[in-house]
Design a protein around this nucleic acid. Structure first.
Lengths: 218, 218
DNA sequence: GATCGTCTCCCCCGTGCGGGGGAGGCCCGT
DNA sequence: ACGGGCCTCCCCCGCACGGGGGAGACGATC
């Protein structure tokens, strides 16, 4: 049986885009749409979708409020994916606390969006971008347990941290300042990252980070 | 024969939405897509669409610049509809001055979007929302540039080519070999790219390329 | 004709980067 | 208790990188 999805966004164009992307998949079915969070609860009760794609910024009731409302009042609630334009740490944490299961970045490629919906439907809540995991780890009780392991590479924790900062354009000196270690230490980590990724320089490493999904655009 | 449309927006989701809305019409055909204004001119020359749906906010080259560039360099140019999220007076007036033929508001209903495209294709340029006419009336014949628009990243053909190769991890020497020019020439282009993108080094430039959709993962 | 933008090539020069090698402290697991 | 990752820091060194200049050739535009 297919994964059923409810779309909640005040912009018809975004709804149309999500519908087009999702309905291209044989195993995903968009069973309803809503233009505001205020309309979500009755629709969820009626349609009982597996996943709700929820915009954050809506006129009457925003996505955070609506997420809280659904999770508070609906028994056996659907997975909720928050649709965002930017990775805003502030509101990402709000959504996390409200109980959202993941994010759909508007900048993401269709395949990634489809993937996120499938993951959410399967109960897998590992689809948070890096910033969310950082926040979840930092704030602790935010909701889901934080994911520490990154199986994508055999990078150590520290090396992954360094790679993330490299992928944000920081120099070795800036990374050192950020991590409060010496520049020599950063150089060691960078060299290790390059060796493990088979990259010749930091640029190739960053490319690998993007291509592997280790970091995501947006 | 159908109305042909080129979609230019850095968000794949918006492109998918426009495509879904427009292709539902038998007399409208989406013949191409681009993720940044920098890619528009060659595409317009190649596809010769009737209408271009142009986003305003794009990383490398914004919709205003791209609109100017198209109208300045392409003979018998297409009608250009600027896609906006909000009715931003600033953008609206800039777009107007750049020569845009109309607007597509993301909040608009599909029928209105379709209507706007048909009107534009028919050469009717009366499809500005009320705010635009207000502005046009207020500023009259335009006694201002006012805000000196800082030169946005407007990459030349060659620079874009170099950036693409940078984003594939090539060194200056390798790019030189690929393009059959000297390494000095490549250095010149790289410096120009860095300056235009506001990047400090090639790594930051590559990051910008990914974040803007100028290159895409996978 | 003059001007502008683009592409091409060259110089010097400082430095950030990355390789190679080594080393001490720490917490694991066996 | 011992080895093995991991993180940390240090040395030397070569070089690609990038900035700041300048300049000639070509085409398009004015």
């Amino acid at each position: 049986m297919p994964v059923t999805v409810l779309l909640v966004d005040d912009e018809p164009l975004v709804r149309a885009g999500l519908r087009a992307v999702l309905e291209a998949q044989p195993d995903i079915e968009v069973t309803g749409e809503a233009a505001d969070g205020a309309a979500v609860i009755p629709l969820v009760r009626q349609l009982r979708p597996d996943v709700v794609a929820m915009d954050v910024r809506m006129p009457l009731m925003d996505g955070i409020e609506a997420t809280r409302a659904v999770l508070r009042t609906v028994p056996d609630p659907p997975k909720i994916l928050v649709v965002t334009t930017f990775e805003d740490d502030e509101f990402v944490y709000e959504a996390l606390r409200a109980g959202a299961d993941g994010f759909l970045l508007k900048r993401a490629r269709p395949a990634e969006i489809v993937h996120a919906v499938r993951l959410a439907a399967a109960g897998d809540s590992l689809l948070f971008p890096a910033s969310v995991r950082r926040l979840a780890a930092r704030y602790g009780d935010g909701g889901r347990p934080a994911r520490a392991t990154l199986e994508r590479a055999r990078l150590t924790e520290r090396e992954a941290e360094v790679l993330r900062l490299m992928a944000r354009g920081l120099s070795n000196a800036e990374i050192a300042a950020r991590l409060v270690v010496s520049a020599e230490t950063v150089k060691s980590h960078v060299s290790a990252v390059l060796a493990k990724l088979g990259a010749r320089d930091r640029t190739q490493a960053v490319i690998a980070a993007y291509e592997s999904g280790f970091v995501e655009p947006g």
